[in-house]
Amino acid sequence: SDFTIRIGDRTLHLKNVSEEILKILEELLRRGIDFEELRKIVEELIK
């Protein structure tokens, strides 16, 4: 499924993301992860 994360004025667009990855990202966001850290993790996950 497609997913968009907005943190402040920044946006991260994800396409064809599995439910498992979404759950991980949601947990990281709940813990207050930094946007740049989140972006790096996402890039690793979707390689």
Rank of each mutant, 00 (worst) to 15 (best):
I46D: 12
R39C: 04
K47A: 13
E43W: 15
L25D: 00
D9E: 11
T4P: 01
E27N: 13
L12C: 02
G32T: 08
L12H: 01
E36G: 05
F35N: 03
I24M: 12
D2P: 00
E27Q: 12
D34S: 13
R10Y: 14
K15E: 04
S1T: 13
K15V: 06
F35A: 04
L14I: 07
L38F: 15
I46M: 15
F3E: 01
N16W: 06
E27R: 10
T11V: 15
R10H: 08
R6E: 09
R30M: 08
R30K: 09
I21R: 05
F3Y: 08
I24N: 08
G8S: 01
L25A: 08
D2V: 00
R30V: 08
V17E: 01
R39L: 14
L29M: 12
N16D: 05
L25V: 15
D9K: 07
K15R: 11
D9N: 11
V17M: 04
I41E: 08
S18C: 02
H13N: 05
K15A: 05
S18P: 14
L45R: 04
K15Y: 12
I24H: 11
E27T: 14
F35K: 03
L12A: 00
E44P: 07
K40A: 14
K40C: 09
N16S: 05
E36I: 06
D2G: 03
I5P: 00
F3V: 13
L45E: 07
T4R: 05
R30H: 12
R10E: 07
L29W: 11
G8L: 02
R31I: 07
E44H: 10
K47C: 09
H13M: 10
N16A: 05
L45F: 07
L14Q: 00
L22N: 03
R31V: 09
E26Y: 15
L14W: 03
I46K: 08
E27A: 14
L12W: 06
L28E: 07
T11F: 04
V42K: 01
E36Q: 10
I24Q: 13
L22R: 14
R30C: 05
S18F: 02
K23T: 12
L45H: 07
K23H: 12
I7T: 01
I24C: 07
D34E: 12
I21M: 15
L45S: 06
V42L: 08
L38W: 05
T4A: 03
E19C: 07
H13R: 11
I5A: 02
E44A: 11
E36M: 10
I5M: 03
R6F: 03
R6K: 13
R39K: 12
H13L: 12
L38R: 01
I46Y: 14
F3K: 02
E43D: 14
I33Q: 05
D9M: 05
E20D: 14
I21N: 15
V17P: 06
V17W: 02
E44T: 10
I24G: 06
N16Y: 06
I46L: 14
R39I: 15
V17N: 01
G8R: 02
H13P: 01
R10N: 09
L38N: 02
L12P: 00
D2A: 01
E37C: 08
H13K: 09
N16V: 03
I7K: 01
D9G: 12
F35T: 05
R10D: 06
F35M: 07
V17G: 02
G8Q: 03
R39P: 05
S1E: 10
D9V: 04
E37K: 09
S1P: 06
E36W: 14
E36A: 08
E20N: 09
E37L: 12
K40N: 11
E20S: 09
T4D: 05
I5T: 00
L12G: 00
E37S: 14
D9A: 06
K15G: 03
L22P: 04
I7Q: 02
E19N: 11
I41N: 08
R30G: 05
E43G: 08
V42T: 07
I5E: 00
L25S: 02
D2I: 01
S1I: 14
L22Q: 14
R31P: 03
L28N: 05
E19M: 14
H13D: 02
N16P: 01
T4Y: 05
I21T: 14
K23Y: 14
K15Q: 04
R6Y: 03
I24V: 12
I33F: 07
D9C: 14
I46H: 10
D2N: 02
I5S: 00
E36R: 07
L14D: 00
R30S: 11
I5D: 00
R31K: 12
V17Q: 02
L28I: 07
E20Q: 10
D2Q: 01
E20F: 14
S18V: 03
H13I: 13
E26F: 15
N16R: 06
I46T: 12
I7H: 02
K40Y: 10
G32W: 04
I7G: 00
E27C: 15
G8P: 00
L22K: 15
D34G: 15
G8H: 02
H13V: 15
K15S: 07
G32S: 09
E26M: 15
R10M: 13
L45V: 07
R31F: 05
L45D: 03
K40E: 10
E19Q: 13
N16C: 05
T11C: 03
K23D: 12
R39F: 14
G32A: 09
L29E: 02
K23L: 11
I33K: 08
L28R: 05
E20P: 15
T4C: 06
G32E: 12
E36T: 10
L25C: 04
L25E: 00
K40T: 13
T11S: 06
G32L: 04
E26L: 15
I33Y: 13
V17I: 10
R30N: 09
R10Q: 12
D2T: 00
E27S: 13
I46R: 08
K47N: 12
K23P: 11
G32R: 04
H13A: 05
L14H: 00
L29F: 07
T4V: 13
S18N: 08
E19T: 15
L38T: 04
I5K: 00
T4M: 07
L28Y: 14
K15L: 03
L45M: 11
D34Q: 15
E44D: 12
I21F: 13
E26S: 15
R6N: 10
F35R: 02
I7A: 02
E37T: 15
T11K: 03
L25H: 00
V17H: 01
E19H: 11
I7E: 01
R10V: 09
I24Y: 13
G8Y: 02
L22E: 05
I5Y: 01
L29N: 03
R6T: 14
E20V: 06
G32P: 13
E27Y: 15
L25I: 15
I21D: 12
T4S: 05
I33V: 08
